[in-house]
Design a protein around this nucleic acid. Structure first.
Lengths: 260, 260
DNA sequence: ACCTGAACACCGTTCAAGT
DNA sequence: ACCTGAACACCGTTCAAGT
């Protein structure tokens, strides 16, 4: 409890586990004397985010960041403990702060707005969806979590119900982001009328998978417009919100309105 | 259209794109003469699945498979085009065939049974959830797809509605599988009363994130029993099914019954 | 205090040989 | 036909030096 004389604030963050020091900004004694570092954690993280945005999570490597900064890979270990910590820092940076919550509106409209806003962050940084799922323990992740809990408080949920709803909505955003990104990648040519579609239809019929065959034959299968799109995300979101309302004894007609 | 004299069946599969030949079993001219291979695609794939089950998708490497089989890495290229093809084959093998559909029952009970069965496959092979999302074009993936379309045909959906519902259910299984696996991994100690929880509460209060702070302080945050569990999966599934029913103008009381 | 360089164990993939 | 071995470009991480 003794206050220290130096300018370092006596923040509670200093009791965080070591791997969370840097993401909470309590790690490095500012180091204002001695040979100044040619680069800092900020530039490392910014470079990591750029690499991920351009070429995916696999491109967020210590080697790649070092190349981008013009230093050796091993120099990064002065600023970082491991590649895992780089991922922690990059995630929180890419997440950013959520938009301020508009005051009024129903819980379901608020939840829809939250989900769309998070979806937009995943769209800007698709590699976010490839990081492991963690309980939010970093500043920006917790700010998003707090914002969602705020809108859900206006809904018919008890505290555990809020957490379950939050997990469901978060999972949907993540799943939709992965699907949108992966299905947009070039794959086998599934356009209606293509040789592959005809072949697939024949193989499915041969194996008695008639219902999948019907979908393929109807040309519903290869339309990239039909899968993993924003419409799909919206449909799933409205379905989840309708389900939450229905299970709480409420009724919502026509789903949540589109915000914005 | 000319029938060939040799015993190779004139299957339509021979018109598939090359990267799908092996997974459909139409690739290698059986090669019954000449020096027999010491190992085949079957043993490669079985080894790959074992590696993934034991140590995750990152462990499914050509190097690891070769080590397991006692051959050099480069020898695998006789049987495989790339690591990607290994992933395609391993996924279809781990997915297996879906269980035969029980005859009667409501569409929602059938959909719940389908989701639980797929969830069980993801539990047995957690690395499945890390593979990229693809439209099903392999035999077992298509069999699962066909099974789900079969139960959804009994529900209030038009063909595009069936596809949207299928995407939503598939995404939920995947998201729940990832969350369950990742949250089960050892992380920072978030037990109620731990130093981290106290510190986090203080930091959140300091930043005005009062609703997240309340969750943390109430001890709802660190209970591993509360997040990513089978209960969470069930809750989300029932919510989605209730939402699908509600949006189709139906009403389901109390969610879908638990099968089994 | 900060960075470099060598070293090690690990990847996927290509190509030239061996049998 | 099948496998080995060398080579190349790429990883994360540790340790001993350099300035």
């Amino acid at each position: 409890m003794a206050r220290r004389a130096d300018p370092t604030p006596d923040v509670p963050g200093t009791r965080l586990p070591p791997e969370l020091h840097r993401v909470w900004g309590v790690a490095p004694p500012p180091a204002t004397r001695g040979p100044r570092a040619g680069f800092g954690v900020e530039r490392i993280v910014a470079t990591a985010v750029e690499l991920g945005d351009a070429r995916g999570l696999a491109a967020i490597t210590l080697t790649g960041v070092a190349r981008g900064l013009g230093v050796t890979t091993t120099a990064l270990y002065r600023h970082l403990d491991s590649r895992d910590e780089l991922h922690v820092l990059a995630r929180d940076h890419a997440l950013g702060r959520p938009d301020p919550e508009p005051p009024g509106g129903s819980w379901s409209a608020g939840a829809a707005a939250w989900a769309l806003a998070l979806r937009a962050r995943y769209a800007a940084h698709p590699w976010l969806a490839d990081l492991p799922v963690r309980l939010p323990v970093t500043p920006n992740a917790l700010a998003w979590f707090d914002a969602l809990l705020g809108v859900l408080r206006r809904g018919p949920f008890d505290p555990p119900g809020r957490l379950r709803a939050a997990a469901l909505l978060d999972g949907h955003v993540r799943a939709a982001a992965v699907a949108a990104r992966d299905l947009a990648a070039p794959g086998p040519p599934l356009q209606p009328g293509s040789a592959l579609v005809a072949t697939l239809g024949a193989l499915l019929a041969e194996r008695g998978l008639s219902r999948a065959a019907a979908v393929v034959d109807a040309g519903l299968y290869g339309e990239p417009a039909g899968h993993g799109t924003d419409d799909d995300f919206r449909h799933g979101l409205d379905t989840i919100l309708a389900g939450l309302a229905a299970r709480a004894g409420e009724t919502v007609h026509g789903g949540a309105p589109h915000p914005g």
